[in-house]
Simulated scan of single mutants.
Amino acid sequence: MKTNFSAKNVGYITAGIFLLFYIIGVYWSFSVDSFDVREEVTIAATSDNVVPVVGYTTTTTLIKVATSILDKPGGYISNDALPPGVFLDNMPAWEFGVLEMVRDMALVLRKDFSRSQSQSLENIHIQKAQPQFNIDNKSWAMPSAESEYRKAIESLNLYRNALVGLSKNKDDHAQFYARADNLTSYLDEVQKRLGSYSQRLSASVGKEKINTDLAGDNEARQSSYESNHSQVRTSWWKLDDVFYESRGAAWALLHFLKAIEIDFESVLKNKNATISLQQIIRELEASQQTLWSPMVLNGDGFGVLANHSLVMANYISRANAALIDLNELLRKG
């Protein structure tokens, strides 16, 4: 018996498929909840039957943050080549923001936190993990981004095991040095990242930028000429991408700073800088408030509509200003 599909039936099926993709896409786009850093450390330490040492908290948090972009609803979406993931842009932007902070932490862990002085040897596990986080975030071919990130996470697990003496190789030693100069190296990286996000978010309404690239140095030069004044404005199509990328970066940094508050407790107390760090954490927590609007609004100045990009820029700028003060305190305090 032959079944004839009318145009109406085809339309119903098509509409159903689109509705299904839409529902899945909305579910995959839900924000990832923050987690309790101390609780995660307790769970990991209990599972391994170890007592956390200096660096255990920061490493565990890095592992958890990196795992979050892989194991959230929908998994890692940035390199999806099929619907509905290929049609989503907010969550991939969020993933990239998180990934940028993961890369910064992995780099500083390799260069500074795991090394005592400039002449010390690199830890073999971090040496493997750090470049693996730098693969193209949109790579889906072999090797895929997910597979490289999971290899990096496995190397971080081996480093953490070596920190607490769980390594099967007796010659596998690892250290984490919670020193003021090491911490300032990380904060230097974060300052540049937050400064960039603040500028990009503020450009949502368009602004005239004064070129200060060579300010403060009469002998400074640059490779090509740039005008002293330029008009900067984020494309309307990129507003939500910049917003969610910044939100993802702030989410990751929030957890890293909470871990630093634990591992660098003695350093922060010695510099009387604990309150300064906690203030930065408060600003970043505010940046994670629920976005009730179905889209990122872009009101102009003091107009009727809100401008979510400027609100986010405010929190990130305040966090960055406090971060600069904290860095100076660590260096001179």
Rank of each mutant, 00 (worst) to 15 (best):
S6E: 10
D136W: 09
I24D: 00
K209S: 03
F87R: 00
A249H: 09
M295L: 13
S287L: 03
T67N: 15
Q191Y: 14
I260R: 01
P84I: 14
G299W: 15
I281G: 11
H173V: 12
E261N: 07
K168Y: 12
D104S: 14
S34P: 09
E148V: 06
S266M: 05
E226W: 02
G333D: 04
L166H: 05
S227K: 03
A15I: 04
K170I: 11
S185D: 04
D36I: 08
L19N: 12
K64Y: 12
L82D: 12
S235P: 14
A174K: 06
D217S: 05
D241M: 14
T42Q: 06
I280S: 05
Y177Q: 04
D112L: 14
N161K: 09
L214Q: 03
I23N: 03
V41C: 10
A313L: 04
I210G: 01
D172W: 10
D71V: 06
W28E: 03
Y315V: 02
G75V: 02
N79R: 15
I124V: 14
N157I: 07
I126W: 11
V108P: 03
S287P: 00
A273C: 03
G97S: 01
L62S: 12
L82H: 08
Y76V: 06
L326A: 02
E95L: 04
H308I: 02
D89M: 08
T58H: 01
K332S: 11
T234H: 12
A7K: 15
